[in-house]
Amino acid sequence: MSAVLHPSTELGHVSLRIRNLARSVRFYTEVIGLKMLRQQGRVAELTADGKHTLLMLEEVEGLIQQPERTAAGLYHFAILVPDRKSLGLVIRNLISHNIPVGQGDHLVSEALYLSDPDNNGIEIYADRPRDTWKRDEKGEIMMTTDPVDVDGLLAVSEGSEWNGLPAGTVIGHVHFHVSNLQEAKRFYCDVLGFELTAHYGNAAMFISAGGYHHHIGLNVWAGVGVPNTPRHAAGMNYFTVVLPSEEELKVVGDRIHAAGLTLEERDGAFYVKDPSDIEVRLVVQSANNK
């Protein structure tokens, strides 16, 4: 039987390597709208609800900034806001800071794209109701990239006050450049247990748990066979997969061991590296308090 993750699996916080903590904290609080939860030394934890870490920033001395689309690794991480009004308020705040923004209506969602001071890609998006998502004749979720109704988002948020990202904001998905799409699929689908939801030829695929449009995007837009982002470059340290129970964690851990991969335990969580040298942090729901 094929490996399939429990349908209630979701994503937790992400950790980024950055070059200047004060600069990045200022960007993520003032521009993105997160709040400081705690800071210890060169590590800051940011939150939307004041309780749970959404983003961890680690300042590493001597980091370089990797040129875009030259390596496997982070393409963007995606912050999911609860509704269109919240996304409209995000647009208003980005405009007030004169931030260049890309955008795309993906049918299942409306999304904004930008980069942080270290060129880490960010998406901020709002989902459309799941019962409006359409599937094609192969059963794959239909997604595209059309212009966003920016005027509509501004209208729905008119008169509301920006107070940062609201409670209920979560990490919706992560998206990676990879050097080999099938190798990445083997890791994320055959070993971890995510399921394919859509693919675009041999260039990109989207995978998820529980029928979500995607928790992870994988693409070879940087080129087939590109090297991994080096650890001395800014980028993603890890992202978190939140499993519903210890039993599910054991099942996933057994698949990881059976695949000959190393599963490391530290700080109350388990870590395994994907083919792009990004660590996947595995926790259970009750322990997802960071």
Results as ranks from 00 to 15, higher is better:
residue 176 F to V: 00
residue 161 E to S: 11
residue 201 G to I: 03
residue 184 A to L: 07
residue 147 P to N: 12
residue 196 L to H: 09
residue 189 C to H: 04
residue 201 G to L: 04
residue 190 D to L: 06
residue 147 P to Y: 13
residue 195 E to S: 15
residue 182 Q to P: 00
residue 148 V to A: 01
residue 151 D to N: 15
residue 193 G to L: 05
residue 151 D to V: 13
residue 181 L to A: 09
residue 155 A to Y: 15
residue 196 L to N: 09
residue 151 D to W: 14
residue 166 P to L: 09
residue 202 N to F: 08
residue 143 M to V: 08
residue 186 R to T: 05
residue 182 Q to T: 07
residue 156 V to W: 05
residue 202 N to R: 11
residue 143 M to Y: 01
residue 148 V to N: 01
residue 155 A to G: 08
residue 143 M to Q: 11
residue 174 V to E: 03
residue 147 P to G: 02
residue 177 H to M: 12
residue 165 L to W: 07
residue 189 C to P: 01
residue 166 P to K: 10
residue 167 A to R: 04
residue 185 K to I: 04
residue 199 H to L: 11
residue 179 S to L: 00
residue 199 H to Q: 15
residue 181 L to E: 09
residue 198 A to M: 04
residue 145 T to A: 14
residue 182 Q to F: 02
residue 186 R to A: 13
residue 154 L to C: 12
residue 198 A to N: 10
residue 197 T to V: 02
residue 167 A to E: 14
residue 176 F to D: 00
residue 175 H to W: 10
residue 191 V to F: 12
residue 202 N to E: 11
residue 193 G to W: 00
residue 188 Y to A: 03
residue 179 S to M: 01
residue 170 V to N: 04
residue 175 H to Q: 05
residue 192 L to S: 03
residue 156 V to H: 08
residue 146 D to K: 14
residue 153 L to H: 10
residue 158 E to T: 11
residue 199 H to V: 06
residue 194 F to H: 00
residue 170 V to T: 13
residue 192 L to R: 00
residue 191 V to R: 02
residue 194 F to P: 00
residue 158 E to I: 08
residue 200 Y to V: 00
residue 156 V to L: 07
residue 153 L to K: 04
residue 178 V to M: 07
residue 162 W to M: 02
residue 182 Q to R: 11
residue 149 D to H: 12
residue 194 F to D: 00
residue 188 Y to L: 04
residue 180 N to M: 08
residue 148 V to Y: 12
residue 180 N to D: 15
residue 178 V to W: 08
residue 143 M to R: 02
residue 164 G to L: 04
